[in-house]
């Protein structure tokens, strides 16, 4: 990654407390377009608080959040989505009973042209077709069909969910444990989609407990411990052992 460019996302001295519990302390880092950043840490290290701050679920107590050169204050997750950040939480991904196309366009439906569209009629055919095109751009091939998401395998589902985030994100996608509960082969599918999203020029924040996945797919790793950034280094600097040591605090 070339650091002469402007960062697409920058955090400066972010602090966040819940009552007397300090969740984040002076968290700062920069993230660039076209890179995958692994965000790792033990339980309670502050990963969730950090994601929620970036995606607008809550506001930091102090510090600055800069997206594409503009300082931002989110009022709701809507604001972060409008600013080009998509977040995929665990378990909140897709509506299993809707078709793939309907899911991809959920909340952003295409309406028919003319008077029917004004009345709220949806252009289902256009949505299914565009969904297919957009998913192919991030390397996911699914059939153009009336298939519902519930009929896909776990890996396919997660791939479609990430594809959805990648399709709508202008700048950043945040993936919270996207390979959880997936088998080895299915995880591989998901990791390939993440690489494709990066190749597409997006910045991917990848949160995971599965360290081999982190080491495989990321360009850079940020390690959080007790609410602080304790290490921010290229992935090539880590081995599984050294990463584990950094997370637990055995070596720094």
């Amino acid at each position: 990654m070339t650091n002469e460019r402007e960062p697409i996302l920058e955090l400066r001295n972010i602090n966040k407390s819940y009552g007397s519990v300090k969740a984040l302390t002076d968290v700062s880092f920069k993230a660039y377009a076209g890179e995958v950043i692994g965000l790792v840490g033990d339980n309670g290290a502050g990963k969730s608080s950090l994601i929620k701050t970036i995606s607008g679920v809550h506001n930091p107590d102090s510090g600055e959040l800069i997206v594409d050169g503009v300082t931002r204050h989110w009022k709701s997750p809507h604001d972060s989505m409008a600013a080009g950040i998509e977040t995929l939480y665990q378990d909140s991904g897709l509506a299993p009973d809707l078709t793939i196309g309907s899911n991809i366009f959920l909340g952003r439906e295409l309406e028919k042209k003319g008077i029917l569209g004004k009345l709220g009629f949806l252009d289902q055919r256009a949505m299914e077709r565009k969904a297919l095109e957009e998913l192919e751009k991030v390397g996911i091939t699914v059939p153009l069909s009336k298939r519902t998401v519930s009929q896909l395998s776990g890996g396919q589902r997660q791939a479609v969910a990430i594809g959805r985030a990648a399709m709508w994100a202008q700048h950043v996608i945040i993936l919270d444990e996207p390979t959880n509960h997936l088998g080895a082969r299915q995880s591989l599918e998901v990791l390939k989609v993440i690489s494709a999203a990066r190749d597409h020029g997006l910045c991917v924040l990848f949160i995971s407990h599965t360290l081999p996945h982190v080491l495989e797919v990321t360009d850079r790793i940020i390690v959080l411990r007790l609410g602080r950034v304790v290490k921010d280094a290229l992935t090539s600097d880590f081995t599984v052992e050294s990463l584990l040591g950094t997370i637990t605090g055995l070596n720094t």
């Binding site: 390397g139 091939t141 699914v142 069909s145 597409h200």
Partner: peptide, 13 residues
Amino acid sequence: MSTVETPVASSNE
């Protein structure tokens, strides 16, 4: 760009 090969893809054809 790599293409994920999924079992669903085959039912396409």
